[in-house]
Each structure stands twice: as C-alpha cells, then as structure tokens.
Computed example of a mutant assay.
Amino acid sequence: MNLNIIGYFIYLSITAFIILKVGEICYKNGNVYVAELIPNHSDLCQKINQILLLAYYLLNIGYCAMTLISWEKILSTNQLIEIIAIKTAAIVFIISALHYTNIIIITKYIHKLIK
C-alpha cells in the first residue's frame, strides 16, 4: 500500500502549523527590532514587518511544497513516521537558522548605527 498521500497530508499539516505559529510570534515581537532600525516611522516599520512576514511564509511554505517532489514511495507506517520526522526536522532547522541569521544581521546593523 502506498502511504504517500497520507504522509503528505500529515507533513503539510504539521509544517503549516509550525510555520504559521512561528510567523505569528516573530511578527508580534519583530516590530520592536524594525522600529529600532527606523525610529519615528511606526507606519513604515509596520509595513516592513508585514513584508517580512509575507516573505517568510512564501519561502517556507514554498520549500515545504517543493520537498514533496523528493519523497520516495512509502510502504510502511514505520517509514511514514521516519520520513515525516526527518522532513519536519529539516523545516524546523531551516526556520531557526533563518531566524538567528536575521537576528545577527539586525544586531550588527544596530551596533553600527550606535557607534
């Protein structure tokens, strides 16, 4: 029995939840960092934060959809769980790497402005 369709549904459900939840948290808390970069322009900061959120969603959801192409045929429930775990872990790793890269870049930029 081919379990790929079930795997796709489970994988996309899990990753969509993770992506949407992390995006919501970063959006709420990220406005402070953007406001630090561009003081006295709250409307512009809000728009930039919205664009960052949209780019985040497009990048991550697009990547999740593209990974479906590389899935091999799933023949057992053990293989199904293993593939979902590996693919979900990859998404979480990518999200965290992008987040920390953004924090490092923003922090260095703010330190440059202060000096």
Rank of each mutant, 00 (worst) to 15 (best):
N2V: 05
I5W: 08
I5V: 06
I6S: 02
F9S: 13
F9Q: 11
F9M: 10
I10H: 04
Y11I: 01
L12C: 13
L12T: 04
I14T: 03
T15S: 07
A16C: 06
F17C: 09
I18L: 15
K21E: 14
K21N: 11
V22M: 05
V22I: 08
G23V: 08
I25E: 14
I25D: 07
I25R: 07
C26P: 01
K28N: 15
K28S: 15
K28H: 14
G30H: 02
N31A: 09
Y33P: 01
E36R: 02
L37N: 02
L37F: 02
P39L: 15
P39Y: 15
N40R: 14
H41C: 14
H41P: 05
L44P: 01
Q46Y: 06
K47A: 11
K47Y: 11
K47P: 03
K47G: 05
I48G: 06
I48N: 09
N49L: 12
N49W: 12
I51Y: 14
I51H: 10
L54I: 09
Y56N: 07
Y56Q: 05
L58I: 13
N60F: 03
G62A: 07
G62N: 03
G62V: 02
Y63W: 10
M66W: 10
L68H: 04
I69Y: 08
S70Q: 06
S70P: 00
W71L: 12
I74E: 00
I74D: 00
I74A: 01
L75T: 13
S76C: 11
S76A: 10
T77E: 10
T77C: 14
I81C: 09
E82S: 09
I83R: 03
I84S: 00
A85I: 02
T88V: 02
A89F: 02
A90M: 07
I91F: 01
I91S: 00
I94W: 05
S96R: 04
S96N: 08
S96D: 10
S96M: 12
A97C: 06
H99E: 08
H99R: 06
T101Q: 04
I104G: 03
I106L: 13
I106R: 07
T107R: 14
K108Q: 15
K108M: 15
I110R: 13
I110K: 12
H111N: 10
K112R: 13
L113M: 10
L113N: 13
I114S: 15
K115F: 04
